[in-house]
Design a protein around this nucleic acid. Structure first.
Lengths: 147, 147
DNA sequence: CTGCTTGCAAACCCTTTGCAGTCCC
DNA sequence: GGGACTGCAAAGGGTTTGCAAGCAG
């Protein structure tokens, strides 16, 4: 399940970070957005309602949230440095729309067999993986065919 | 199978690009390296034997090679903008060492079932995916335990 | 109150671009 | 020989840092 505003706030405070007005706005914007966001687009969203919040604060907050794994960093489809809200509990992956950057989470995939095979064959100690799918969401498919 | 020097040269020329002394050196360095390389580390390698080759040429050559899919861009484990030599024929994935950045390719994985399920459930038209594993190669595991 | 947090501006990368000379084919 | 390619230097863009003022707890 995706993190709620309350959960994010609690986790930040539990780790000794203050829950400032600016951080609340940034968290709100990330959670409210269906899309993945770059620092710049996130700043634009936050800036609408809170014109006094600077881009620097966005960077610093993203850094903290990534550190605490409250947000996920996306890579697929060309653009790095895009973020989406994280999940509590489950390990999950992302399906990202190349058109509108919207993100759908999914969990049902198990790599344990593959990881075991890879470990046996390569001798690597596997610490993690990165899996993303990209394509077009239903809405963007319609837009495209409608043109 | 990974691209050979000859294959890379042929493909470049087939696409109307000239095979200059600089490009030969860059291709040589990428193929000779077991590791994934950033533009800067690649430049350092090339620069040793050919001090007259500029970083700008590295960027321009990487751009062309990525465009022609002669090299693969890596994302996992934190650092983006790292490249490794591509493969002819097979679709493949990478296993990257977080210690020394060495790359091992693997092919045996089939996402068609997963992709079908995702398409059914989300309505996405899936165009591609990104899968990387990261961990420690045998050599770096030894170094770590030896410390 | 105290120390974390913020905003501004400047510094700092990394990457791209303009241009004149060079070189592959 | 001609057009693609290169290197230099400069511009460009995104990200980080120093510092004084502000604010959460």
């Amino acid at each position: 399940m995706k993190f709620t505003r309350k959960e994010v706030g609690t986790i930040l405070q539990r780790h000794g970070y203050k829950l400032t007005r600016q951080r609340r706005s940034i968290i709100e914007a990330i959670i409210a957005s269906q899309d993945s966001l770059t620092p710049a687009t996130l700043h634009a969203k936050v800036h609408r309602d809170h014109p006094d919040i600077g881009l620097v604060t966005i960077y610093r907050t993203l850094e903290i949230m990534a550190e605490l794994e409250l947000i996920c960093e996306l890579h697929g489809g060309g653009a790095c440095h895009r973020y989406t809200i994280g999940q509590s509990e489950q390990h999950h992956h992302h399906l990202v729309c190349s058109g509108c950057n919207s993100v759908t989470d999914f969990t049902r995939h198990n790599f344990s067999t593959l990881e075991q095979n890879l470990t046996q064959q390569s001798g690597f100690r596997i610490d993690g993986h990165l899996l993303e799918f990209f394509g077009l969401c239903p809405t963007c498919q319609e837009k495209q065919s409608g043109t």
